[in-house]
Design a binder for these strands. Structure first.
Lengths: 209, 209
DNA sequence: CGTACTTTTGAATCGCATCAAATCTGGTGG
DNA sequence: CCACCAGATTTGATGCGATTCAAAAGTACG
């Protein structure tokens, strides 16, 4: 009889990856599994951070809204911590909600702080994670300072892509939002690049040729 | 006889401020004072980081150039660490040079690492510094995703300004570069905002009215 | 005084946002 | 199974704001 094919537990997978695999055993015990549904509010400006959320699957969005009612996404976390910077804040400076049904691993702030103090691998995993986020953001800012859709898209393929291949996570509308351009402009740009044989576009990914 | 009026040492001042004032005594001893002149190269892509530079005065610029020869500034450090993320990298991913004559405090990477491990105030000062840089970058990306010069400028005044007042560090051309717009567009926008009484523009600062 | 740079204004052009509308898609319920 | 709906995708037309090129005036500095 063949062994039963359990679906791989995404939480187990998350514990195997960065930065969680360096986390102290005490943190594994302290972590709480949380399921949220699309749109659910995770925290609001002014609240005191008590838990830090690692987004195992789905998406969580940190955003700020101006008084005109327009909202801007500051972070879209997938397979990463949401609002890492709030580990030592006394209150949140943004709002956050689930961008889709999502599975979270939530860590008590106190436990995380003491693990960083007392457990060297946790400490350096945390610092490395912050540093890598800084790099990602710098690259993001670099991209947004480019003027044309074409330049931004190619920049994304070069910097984020795996050898020129970038898997499409969400819809192309989402990609347009990430690039800070209208979806129409992105569609037109994709059509042109595809027609000119510069980028191959399929349902799974964009590939630089 | 009045006490002699020594000019305040900018290095002393830097040690009083964040994040250096939390640094371990061992780091004070290990730090090296370095003066560089405008244009001088601080490091190049591929080199192994041995020193981490705190920019006491002047400016240091981290940049990446594409093969077209165009360079984009990823970070302009003033009163802050340059390339903090390289503390655990085995090599630099960018180039850096002095944007002006500058005074640096340089820390040996090894000493900084062990201070973070062994000295709690240093550790949390470092983590807080990384977190605050992430916030700054997120805010920066938010700003760059705005479409018009006007919106970007007002966003900068609100988020970076002290109660709507933003001291002008460099030239207005520099400000235009920071906002990711041409300097002509910025001059025109400033003229309009000034004429309409929305922003007061003088040599020292921009003030939101 | 001359040089290099910033600041400022003008004019032409280009790319994108926006509005509109049609098609396609996946999912839901009758 | 089909009708239907919400959303994504796609194409078209228009206008606006920014870029770009150009040129003049101001400013700092040796």
């Amino acid at each position: 009889m063949p062994p039963r094919q359990d679906p791989p537990d995404p939480i187990d997978a998350a514990w195997q990856g960065e930065p969680l695999r360096h986390f102290a055993p005490a943190l594994r015990d302290a972590a709480r599994r949380v399921e949220v549904s699309a749109g659910e509010v995770l925290f609001r400006t002014g609240q005191q951070p008590a838990w830090l959320h690692f987004v195992v699957s789905g998406e969580a969005v940190m955003s700020r809204c101006d008084r005109d009612g327009r909202c801007l996404a500051l972070q879209r976390a997938r397979g990463a911590f949401l609002a890492e910077a709030s580990l030592h804040s006394t209150q949140y400076h943004c709002d956050a909600h689930a961008g889709s049904d999502a599975l979270l691993l939530s860590f008590p702030v106190r436990a995380l702080r003491s693990a960083i103090d007392g457990h060297e691998p946790t400490r350096w995993a945390w610092i490395a994670m912050l540093a890598s986020e800084i790099r990602r953001q710098r690259s993001n800012a670099e991209r947004l300072s480019l003027k044309t859709v074409r330049e931004r898209l190619l920049h994304l393929l070069v910097t984020q892509g795996d050898n020129g291949r970038l898997p499409l996570a969400g819809t192309r509308k989402d990609l347009a939002a990430q690039l800070g351009v209208s979806h129409e402009a992105l569609y037109r740009c994709l059509a042109t690049l595809s027609r000119d044989g510069i980028v191959r576009v399929d349902d799974q990914a964009l590939t630089l040729l």
